[in-house]
């Protein structure tokens, strides 16, 4: 009985130490990969920041309105520093995943492969949101300027609606890319987009009938003018 107990104890200890011995190299390898990942991530961060500084990325963000959005969100870091940090974490996460896979744990390995399969979708969604944001800013500013210069009523409202529609479109595309509740997102987009357009049509057609009439009359009158709208030649 006692022999059996000691055998079992030794067997368990052996199994434990064998497990530890089997696991240790993997753990050490994982730690080493993490250290390398930290160093590589840091190097990438420095390179990205310096490259963006040379490319005047912060200036571009100032002019495109990205900096203002960051300020509103109380993010004080400059856009180039932010991008550097983003790249650091991307590299670090990749190395972390590689380190975890070195542990040879089946569940973790499966999660890691799913993460790497999903990563391109995250990046694509991020790119879509960024492009949507830049496009929305650009087009809404163009609409604002055109409305002011044409002496149209409520230029800010017009610009806001344009920006909102582009933001909705970009957001829906990003969610579709991430495959989050795909059918619900598409349905919600169609419903909300349709509702906005219908609302505008009703508002302009019924509520703003007189405004529409005035605007159209003014446009038609301008077409009939033989001279410049102001009665003299500006040029």
């Amino acid at each position: 009985m006692s022999a059996s107990f000691s055998e079992r104890l030794l067997g368990a200890l052996n199994a434990f130490f064998e497990g530890v011995v089997r696991f240790l190299p993997g753990l050490l390898a994982a730690l080493l990969i993490l250290v390398i990942g930290t160093v590589v991530g840091w190097l990438v961060k420095v390179v990205v920041r310096r490259t963006l500084a040379v490319a005047r990325f912060d200036h571009f963000c100032d002019s495109s309105g990205i900096s203002q959005v960051l300020n509103k969100a109380d993010i004080r870091a400059t856009p180039s520093k932010l991008m550097g940090s983003l790249f650091f974490w991307l590299v670090f996460l990749s190395f972390l995943m590689a380190g975890l896979s070195a542990l040879e744990v089946e569940v973790i390995k499966r999660l890691i492969s799913e993460f790497f399969l999903y990563l391109p979708r995250i990046l694509a969604a991020f790119a879509i949101l960024l492009v949507g944001f830049l496009l929305g800013n650009f087009v809404s500013r163009a609409a604002l300027l055109a409305s002011v210069n044409a002496n149209m009523p409520s230029p800010r409202l017009i610009a806001g609606v344009v920006k909102f529609l582009i933001a909705i479109l970009a957001f829906a595309m990003a969610l579709e890319q991430l495959e989050i509740a795909k059918s619900i997102v598409i349905a919600a987009f169609i419903i909300s987009f349709g509702a906005v357009m219908l609302g505008l049509a009703i508002a302009f057609g019924l509520g703003g009938r007189d405004v529409a009439k005035t605007v159209l009359e003014r446009q038609l009158k301008d077409l009939d003018q033989p001279r410049d709208r102001d009665g003299f030649s500006h040029i």
């Binding site: 500013r141 604002l144 300027l145 409305s147 002011v148 210069n149 002496n151 230029p155 800010r156 001279r227 709208r229 102001d230 009665g231 003299f232």
Partner: peptide, 23 residues
């Protein structure tokens, strides 16, 4: 003689001062 619409011009100017101030 030519007609001028100062009111319309100032309407655009004031709209600019109000709506384009950020620019």
């Amino acid at each position: 003689p030519i007609r001028v619409d100062v009111g319309r011009m100032l309407g655009v100017f004031r709209s600019g001062a109000r709506d384009l101030s950020a620019i």
